[in-house]
């Protein structure tokens, strides 16, 4: 059975992939070390063996190991990238036999990043404002703002934002009886 492992192959083709290896390798090693550092003085079982620290210890240790493997791959990939263009074209053909397993990243525009920042910001806005403004007001501001920003006409934004928010509110507050915050309205 030879079901392909195309992503592996692709990774040797794509150069940007390797930079992820470097960054994620460093992060994973640091994170694993932090876990190991935190659990070093956790208590033992009454009988003296490792208790609460055993499992996180193993996780932290494996993280360091995996992080190092990622870094190793990055080093190897850097060397290979220059010399092995011939092989790369060979594997590209192999990759074509099972394409579209992941949607190829389209170029990132700065617009996209601002939009993502606004999505994250809208959730933070909810966290900060909901107790004061109440659920309906907060979420209407969130949805209408985001829909407008993502390029819909203003009346579409207002209509879709208000209707969906009221719908969500009805379902959760009236049908499922979740006490959603009223804010200063209540």
């Amino acid at each position: 059975m030879t079901f392909d492992t195309a992503p592996e192959v692709e990774e040797t083709v794509e150069n940007s992939e390797k930079s992820y290896d470097l960054a994620s390798g460093v992060v994973v090693v640091l994170f694993g070390s932090a876990i190991l550092f935190t659990v070093r003085d956790y208590p033992t079982l009454p009988s003296g063996e490792l208790g609460p620290s055993l499992f996180p210890g193993i996780i932290g240790g494996l993280m360091v190991l995996m992080g190092l493997l990622l870094l190793g791959r990055w080093l190897k990939g850097r060397k290979a990238a220059r010399t092995n263009s011939a092989e790369a074209s060979g594997t590209a053909a192999a990759a074509a036999s099972a394409p579209a397993n992941d949607t190829a990243p389209t170029p990132v525009y700065w617009r996209g990043w601002i939009n993502a920042g606004l999505v994250v910001g809208s959730v933070i806005f909810y966290l900060l404002a909901v107790d004061f403004l109440g659920f309906l007001t907060t979420v209407i501001i969130m949805t209408v703002g985001l829909i407008l920003r993502l390029g819909a006409k203003w009346w579409v934004a207002v209509l879709a934002g208000v209707l969906s928010t009221v719908g969500v509110w009805l379902i959760f507050n009236k049908v499922l009886l979740v006490p959603l915050p009223l804010g200063f309205w209540g």
Binding site: V119, T143, L146, A152, V168
Partner: peptide, 18 residues
């Protein structure tokens, strides 16, 4: 997507809150 994505955000927020 411009309409759908913000609505999904709203669902994510209210879903986890509830």
């Amino acid at each position: 997507g411009s309409v759908l994505m913000p609505i999904i955000v709203a669902f994510c927020v209210v879903g986890s809150f509830s």
